[in-house]
């Protein structure tokens, strides 16, 4: 087997074959599994808050949230500094024009959980809100740029909304015409749509005529909105299938489905325009739930004085 002499197999041969068949780096230091440092696995813990005598290090220890209040003090200090600068400028008699502003484009405040991580303390909603309001107050001052470094620690970058969207390329059907699909939901309806290029603007919904399915004007306008926005009212033949819900839900679903399918026919700039016209967002509004102690979502039971 494998060109070895079975009868004269010595211990050396055994060692050699083992090292060949089972090359084990287990004995090698470099082959040991790499674990991440423990701080990545265990949540961060606060350093010791008081010494052996029980005396706390920080003067804010007895607030219960020393790190948070420390941060609040720091922010308040910055606010005062920034206001002082403005006062100094006014005393000198100079104008407030020409001061560079903080650039907050493409960033938003970090969430409450992120702040909790920084501060390593559990926070309440109103505490988070208070902190953010303080930072916003700093930003309103003319010399806010002095505090920019501090403030930017609490802002996170946001990307373009459409950066993660994948637009499908056009496909050709058996007649050689380009088509694209789209599907969407609204309320409790769903719709799927096929836009075929080189058509005359005919719309068919579940095999029925457009006018019969949507009796009300607003629903027809809703469906034609993306096509009118793109100036392509008579370019496509549209076949829709919808299910569930009523006319508003169905027309909203069809509109979103048409907008999604339209992206393939149109350049990226225009897709951004469609998004800002509100055509590419799924409408999250649904029927409000009924609450206990009330008749319906909002309606209350008859109020009896006694």
């Amino acid at each position: 087997m494998m060109g070895e002499d079975a009868e004269n197999f010595s211990q050396e041969d055994i060692d050699r074959s083992i090292s060949y068949l089972l090359p084990s780096g287990l004995f090698e230091k470099k082959a040991r599994p790499m674990l991440r440092p423990p701080k990545d696995y265990y949540p961060p813990q606060k350093a010791a808050q008081f010494d052996n005598d029980g005396r706390p290090f920080s003067f804010l220890f007895y607030t219960g949230k020393p790190n948070y209040y420390n941060l609040m003090h720091e922010a308040a200090d910055w606010l005062n500094k920034v206001i002082q600068q403005e006062d100094a400028l006014i005393q000198r008699g100079e104008s407030l024009d020409g001061i560079p502003q903080v650039n907050l484009a493409r960033s938003e405040w970090i969430g409450k959980l992120a702040l909790e991580k920084i501060v390593i303390e559990k926070l309440k909603d109103n505490e988070y809100e208070r902190f953010i309001n303080l930072l916003e107050r700093i930003l309103k001052q003319p010399f806010a740029i002095e505090a920019q470094e501090f403030i930017m620690k609490f802002r996170q970058k946001i990307e373009a909304v459409l950066s993660k969207e994948v637009i499908e390329p056009l496909q050709k059907d058996e007649n050689g015409r380009f088509y694209s699909r789209g599907s969407a939901r609204r309320k409790s309806s769903n719709a799927s749509v096929i836009l075929t290029d080189g058509g005359s603007g005919k719309i068919t919904i579940n095999g029925e005529e457009f006018l019969r399915t949507f009796y009300q004007l607003c629903h027809r306008e809703d469906i034609l909105f993306p096509l009118h926005f793109a100036n392509m009212l008579d370019r496509f033949d549209i076949e829709c299938t919808t299910e569930g819900g009523g006319p508003s839900g169905q027309s909203g679903a069809i509109r979103l489905a048409i907008s999604k399918a339209l992206r393939s026919f149109v350049d990226e700039e225009f897709v951004e325009k469609m998004r800002q016209a509100g055509l590419l967002t799924k409408d999250p509004r649904i029927k409000e739930r009924k609450k206990p102690g009330q008749k319906r979502a909002r309606k209350k039971f008859t109020w009896k004085k006694r």
């Binding site: 909304v161 306008e221 508003s248 951004e272 016209a277 509100g278 055509l279 409408d283």
Partner: peptide, 24 residues
């Protein structure tokens, strides 16, 4: 409104247009 420049930044999320509000 879209002729000269876009009304919002690329990163601003936009609500869906409700019924009755169209470009017509």
């Amino acid at each position: 409104s879209f002729e000269t420049e876009l009304p919002f930044d690329v990163s601003t999320p936009v609500k869906a247009a409700p019924l009755w509000r169209t470009s017509s």
